[in-house]
Design a protein around this nucleic acid. Structure first.
Length: 226
DNA sequence: AAGCAGTGCAACCGCAGATCA
DNA sequence: CTGATCTGCGGTTGCACTGCT
């Protein structure tokens, strides 16, 4: 497995994307698709590397990507999913329609992680000087992400009242995936039962972990599968 | 009003798996 | 089968913005 040669750096832009670049990229993808990210910037006439184009498309330009504040439900879901999946942001993002792994990662690192730390040890809570302190203090309250400026968010609008729900079969899927992979021993360090994790190590503890999790989630169907 | 420090987000970097020739 | 290339992912960084002193 050779490492991919880093994209040609000379002459490539690394500044924030402009509206014009966004339009060029969107127009090219709408016309030709994005079967080859590496060749795309050249074909589209962009002075960007393929990775950069891909990231921009996935995180901001895709028509189905949501922009705006995370709801309390979404934040709770992220916390819950992170407790199961660890730092597998792409998998967490797959369960939050319209949200990207990068966005979820940012929210986790900037809000949720600190909030959980503060909750677990209130005395150690850092002094807050947030743009929107309400979001830090109250999980169910308004969210802290500022509404993006128009030129930064050319895609769909989003209201904080929008409902979020995890698929009914999510927990059973996750159980099959995570437990199955932990048996095969092929999981990465993000595995909740990985060697570097504080999660249960024996099968009994593991079972107990899932039982508690499904009870917490109210997922009787998955509970019965254990 | 100005300076400082903390916060949040967009973007980049580098690694690893998947795929292709 | 092997090596090269591409894609996707998670971690990290840079900087604009905000609020406090």
């Amino acid at each position: 497995m050779g490492r991919s040669p880093c994209c040609e750096k000379t002459g490539l832009k690394r500044a924030p994307w402009t509206a014009e670049e966004d339009m060029t990229l969107v127009a090219h993808i709408e016309r030709h698709g994005h079967s080859n990210w590496r060749a795309l910037p050249k074909q589209a006439g962009l002075l960007r590397c393929g990775k950069s184009c891909r990231l921009r498309w996935i995180n901001y330009l895709r028509p189905d990507v949501k922009r705006g504040n995370f709801t309390g439900e979404e934040e709770d879901a992220i916390i819950q999913l992170h407790s199961i999946l660890g730092n597998r942001w792409s998998m967490i993002a797959a369960k939050l329609p319209g949200r990207t792994d990068n966005e979820i990662k940012n929210v986790w690192n900037t809000h949720l992680k600190k909030r959980l730390e503060a909750a677990s040890s209130p005395s150690a809570a850092p002094k807050r000087k947030a743009k929107n302190p309400v979001a830090v203090a109250a999980p169910e309250g308004p969210n802290s992400l500022p509404a993006p400026s128009p030129e930064q968010s050319p895609s769909t609008s989003y209201t904080s009242d929008e409902e979020f729900q995890i698929d009914d079969n999510f927990w059973s899927e996750t159980l099959a995936m995570t437990v199955g992979s932990s048996v095969s021993g092929t999981e990465s360090s993000g595995d909740p039962f990985g060697a570097d994790s504080a999660s249960p190590s024996s099968s009994n503890e593991e079972m107990d972990f899932w039982v508690r999790l499904f009870i917490q989630a109210g997922d009787v169907q998955s509970l019965s599968q254990i």
